[in-house]
Design a protein around this nucleic acid. Sequence first.
DNA 1: AGTCTACATTATAATTATTCTAAACTGTTG
DNA 2: CAACAGTTTAGAATAATTATAATGTAGACT
Lengths: 142, 142
Amino acid sequence: MLKNAEFVDKLRSSGLRPTKQRLKICEVLFNREKTFHFTINDLAKNISNQLNEKISLATVYNTVHAFKDKGYLKEISINSDKSYFDTNITNHHHFFDEDTNQLIDCNNEDIEEVRVKKNITEKKIKSVEVLIKVASDNQNQN
Amino acid sequence: MLKNAEFVDKLRSSGLRPTKQRLKICEVLFNREKTFHFTINDLAKNISNQLNEKISLATVYNTVHAFKDKGYLKEISINSDKSYFDTNITNHHHFFDEDTNQLIDCNNEDIEEVRVKKNITEKKIKSVEVLIKVASDNQNQN
DNA sequence: AGTCTACATTATAATTATTCTAAACTGTTG
DNA sequence: CAACAGTTTAGAATAATTATAATGTAGACT
């Protein structure tokens, strides 16, 4: 349960101005016990519900991307028309339920560490993440 | 190098009518030596370039999704505003170059088999895929 | 073969997701 | 407390995707 002043510091220290829009978004995103996944649209809705003011969708986009660039959020890869974000910024894997479109965090104990034997590229590996898709048996693959 | 008639059979046998739009798309997608990745937009452009006729973008969407449902294409997960598709339908992993936005297929020998110790869900695992993000050293993560 | 019917397919129009950019704001500096 | 130089916001524009009305197609029955 962080206080407003802490968000101000956090933002300032990473070179982002603590505007009122950003602070509201911080509250909605980080004033929680558990990490969670969301869509830009989810977030925009939460904001206009939980707080009375409404923030332009474009601003929500800007802010989420700024937070992502600063490492406060992670973008998640699933086959979808929408981008998902995650407030859990540790390196971790996901289950994705194709029936319900639900995305579930995976404890690192649930999957054995992935061993990359050969890096095809010349570049540095930034992350290695596994996505496990599940569905009821009668569903077709992918 | 499949012939038109073979595409007709393939489509019929999976319950899709071999319309001229679909046959043209088959040609562009499957008349090749190597598998490849593409965006709906890439594909639509290729079609209007390689062939003289133009197919409505919506039809390209419909067809690609139909092919995916039938298992002739796979949708690929990367952080992007667009959906990527793959004509390589085997279960395989990917490197994603964040500098160039290039997606590279990974030989199964390059990564040790991923072992899921515990399926959190009650449902059947449909696929397990790894995405390795790479970038030049100075890039920021994600 | 020709017409009818039921369903599949196409592609325009509508919707939804994302980005561009002009206007508003902030934080210095004189 | 102006004037300037970035930032940030948010309305307007663009891009991606889907819904649906119009069209096409394959049998069934003449």
